[in-house]
């Protein structure tokens, strides 16, 4: 019975681990539902503000917002990386960071400078480890993304764009497809592309806008405000999607961990029983052998 106590201890510790992973799985499952709700709730705002922006970009000719103007030379790129604050969610953060890193390498080889805005602890840790220039960050968002917390970090990027510090701004996050599938995506935030504003529908001449808004007090400040809010809404949506992705990825990862723990326990129990059986057989044969000798 040499290793039996060790095996029993091992089984006990794996069982404890399994308890933890199972609890985390259930917590993630309930948080996931809420995160998905929030993601859905954020959509109408994004839709509405996009419609207004689309309309305006088609109608207003006297003032074109800098966010809409494509620049020819690209020397500096700003990226916003949305990650989770906590780990234990499978390959979620790794995937999005790998995507960002690959693109960053390409840009660097083209001689472009990159500055990073990090939303979420994991991304920040990674970016500072690879010595990227992090110019703003938000960490510790918790379970409810707060628009107020994002404003500052996003403004740094927007200011950088309007002051010609960046020529393009991209955002990286995990798009929520379904509970089992999340996809790391890169999207161009600035300058706003036509497809982005107008969605998928083809722009034909009949849908061309014929009326313009009355702007109060003036066109410029109103449009400026609207554009900033539009970008913020896009970032906010990315954050809510990422959070929904995070919770579902965590749930799946924890479920896999619990299942694995179950397998390990089964295997160890089998080994434990075998060794016990072997010990009993040995003892028996010794007794029989002893009796035969007498």
């Amino acid at each position: 019975m040499a290793g039996s106590r060790e095996i029993r201890n091992k089984i006990k510790s794996v069982k404890n681990t399994q308890k933890i992973t199972r609890a985390m799985e259930m917590v993630a499952a309930s948080k996931m539902r809420k995160a998905q709700d929030r993601m859905k709730k954020a959509r109408p705002y994004g839709e509405k503000i996009r419609n207004v922006a689309a309309h305006m970009s088609g109608a207003n000719t006297e003032y074109r917002h800098p966010f809409l103007i494509e620049r020819d030379t690209v020397k500096r790129v700003g990226i916003i990386v949305v990650t989770s604050d906590k780990g234990l969610c499978g390959g979620l953060n790794t995937n999005v960071l790998r995507k960002a890193l690959n693109q960053m390498k390409i840009w660097q080889s083209e001689g472009e400078q990159i500055e990073v805005c990090c939303i979420g602890n994991k991304g920040f840790g990674f970016m500072s480890r690879i010595n990227a220039t992090v110019i703003s960050q938000v960490v510790g968002l918790g379970d409810t993304p707060d628009m107020a917390k994002l404003i500052g970090a996003v403004k740094v990027m927007l200011d950088g764009y309007t002051q010609d510090h960046f020529d393009r701004v991209f955002i990286y996050y995990n798009r929520f497809i379904n509970t089992m599938k999340q996809e790391p995506v890169m999207e161009q935030l600035l300058p706003l592309t036509n497809e982005r504003i107008h969605g998928d529908k083809k722009e034909d001449d009949t849908s061309r806008v014929t009326w313009d808004y009355l702007y109060e007090p003036e066109a410029k400040p109103v449009i400026d405000d609207l554009m900033i809010r539009y970008i913020e809404a896009l970032v906010y949506q990315a954050v809510t999607e990422n959070m929904a992705s995070e919770q579902s990825a965590r749930m799946v990862a924890m479920k896999a961990a619990s299942d694995n723990a179950g397998n390990v326990i089964d295997e160890l129990t089998l080994i434990y029983n075998k060794s016990r059986q072997a010990a009993i057989t040995k003892e028996l044969s010794e007794i029989v052998g002893g009796a035969a000798a007498v």
Binding site: I135, S136, G152, A153
Partner: peptide, 11 residues
């Protein structure tokens, strides 16, 4: 503006 500065400082 202050929020932007805060985010920068934090980084």
């Amino acid at each position: 503006e202050t929020k932007a500065i805060e985010a920068k400082k934090a980084a």
